[in-house]
């Protein structure tokens, strides 16, 4: 996972809570040290025409500079992005394209937005271009919905993976709670189908952590388990699961429920 997410997470969720706008600029950049990051930040604050709070962080492994502009809408963010581009070009720091977005205009969930933006940054674009992040971009509409399947039973995993793939979903399999957690951190999923009986991290903890990572994230959670006790059903829904299916299950029914949850 990019270190931009933890760096901005707190701030973004605070903005989200207070229903304040927040602009995000990502730029493909050369590497520089922490001190020069401070320098760049101060320089830019001086150069920018308005006085405002900006936050900057740098991801060394992915070579991405992230800038957060408090209380700026998309239009403003775009305007400032031009200045940032000039500054970076002037110092020959820019190596690729830039991606901008603003919360809440671009996405309902700031965490999700940030994660997707970082993913999108991977597709290199020509230096100096400024792209606006779109939540429902045309290409994403066609992209199959992604499902993370966390289950210990190899047979169920294999069967469901093939079944759901043939129905046009992108399926990733994790074998225990920890594995599931790590895979969820790496990429955003539209739906997580999880068992409750999992080693290392139990299903409940997994649900809690997923909910904690991106509070309003679009990831839906479906529980698929052997447990048929009332208290398990009740607790799952209380923690934020959207559906609860018990084994033995009908794959047709499961797919219908999946479709209802992510469409």
């Amino acid at each position: 996972m990019s270190n931009l997410v933890p760096a901005f997470y707190e701030l973004l969720s605070k903005m989200e809570e207070n229903r304040m706008a927040c602009g995000v600029i990502l730029a493909a950049c050369k590497n520089f040290s922490a001190e020069s990051l401070e320098l760049v930040k101060r320089d830019m604050e001086a150069q920018l025409t308005d006085t405002m709070t900006i936050h900057a962080a740098h991801d060394k492994s992915k070579h991405i500079l992230g800038i957060l502009l408090e209380q700026k809408k998309l239009a403003d963010t775009h305007f400032y992005a031009l200045q940032v581009k000039d500054y970076l070009l002037g110092r020959k720091l820019l190596t690729g394209g830039m991606l901008i977005a603003s919360f809440p205009e671009s996405s309902r969930s700031s965490a999700q937005m940030l994660m997707r933006m970082i993913q999108e940054m991977k597709d290199a674009s020509e230096p100096g271009s400024i792209k606006v992040y779109e939540q429902h971009a045309a290409n994403r509409e066609q992209e199959p919905a992604s499902i993370l399947l966390v289950n210990q039973d190899e047979t169920v995993n294999e069967f469901l993976r093939i079944y759901l793939q043939r129905k046009g979903y992108q399926v990733t399999v994790a074998h225990d709670g920890m594995d599931g957690m790590e895979k969820f951190r790496e990429a955003a999923y539209d739906l997580v189908i999880t068992d409750l009986n999992l080693p290392v991290i139990s299903g409940y903890q997994l649900i809690e952590k997923i909910r904690h990572l991106g509070q309003n994230a679009m990831s839906k959670i479906m529980v698929l388990t052997d447990k048929r006790l009332e208290e398990d059903v009740q607790k799952s829904f209380a923690l934020g699961a959207s559906d609860y299916i018990t084994k033995p299950f009908s794959p047709v029914e499961l797919e219908a429920r999946v479709k209802r949850l992510i469409s």
């Binding site: 388990t225 052997d226 447990k227 048929r228 084994k247 033995p248």
Partner: peptide, 8 residues
């Protein structure tokens, strides 16, 4: 056993 392991 699988069905049993979730039974009330």
């Amino acid at each position: 056993f699988q069905a049993l392991s979730g039974s009330e």
